[in-house]
């Protein structure tokens, strides 16, 4: 994994950090491979692109926008301390703002996001780290996480854990009755019939998504943290 590109969730939503010092073509290359790896994660997402103090020409910015468009990633805004970069962005019709270093510095504690409500049909929760939902994920709703997803409630919608390519991610719910589950690059449709009526865990076993009762899973993974 490269450090030229980092994706972080914050109060304003997803933020895509592009290294401000490295050669621009290397940064673009790193971004391309990151986007390919996490294609599902980025599809349809809106991000703030943070390029630090790098000054981008209009051509360089156009390259970046084209790459993002190719992966269905939308730029909500461009954040930069460089005036050239901001005017290039405005010329391209992208909202531009000066980076507020002090505000960007204290990263969210840990990599987890906490959602305390019912996620309803048509709503999408997207986060680069783990997601905990206290509430239901209804049919037609979507949770997309780079890490694990825990639903303290009924999971009836679609959840994608490990969406940046992590097959070790798991999905747990008090009632696991999803429309569809995805972990990394794997997809599982809901098994027909009702859920077991007890908390369950979905994880990757070999090349497949397996679902097991929380009790069984816990016993067979006794040594895990």
């Amino acid at each position: 994994m490269t450090t030229l590109v980092a994706i972080k969730g914050g109060r304003e939503g997803l933020r895509l950090h592009l290294d401000e010092a490295a050669v621009w073509s290397d940064v673009l290359g790193a971004l391309r491979s990151q986007l390919n790896q996490g294609a599902q994660f980025f599809n349809g997402a809106r991000v703030i692109v943070d390029i630090g103090n790098r000054s981008l020409s209009e051509e360089q910015l156009a390259e970046l926008m084209a790459l993002m468009r190719e992966h269905h990633l939308e730029a909500a805004a461009l954040a930069s301390t460089s005036c050239e970069s901001r005017s290039a962005a405005r010329a391209a019709g992208v909202v531009a703002r000066p980076v507020t270093r002090s505000a960007a510095a204290p990263e969210a504690p840990g990599d987890a996001m906490f959602v305390w409500r019912t996620i309803r049909s048509g709503q999408v929760v997207r986060h680069h780290g783990h997601v905990t939902v206290v509430g239901d994920v209804n049919a037609g709703a979507e949770v997309v996480a780079g890490g694990n997803v825990v639903v303290w409630g009924r999971l009836r919608g679609t959840v994608h854990a490990g969406a940046l390519g992590d097959r070790t991610a798991i999905i747990c719910a008090i009632e696991l009755r999803p429309t569809q589950l995805r972990i990394a690059d794997l997809i599982a449709r809901a098994p027909d019939g009702a859920s077991g009526g007890h908390p369950e865990v979905a994880y990757v076993d070999g090349d497949q998504i397996a679902v097991e009762s929380w009790e069984r899973y816990r016993r067979s993974n006794r040594n895990d943290p």
């Binding site: 309803r120 049909s121 048509g122 709503q123 209804n138 049919a139 037609g140």
Partner: peptide, 11 residues
Amino acid sequence: RDADRIIGLVE
């Protein structure tokens, strides 16, 4: 299902 969608928007 559609009511659920609308409730989300109303909220």
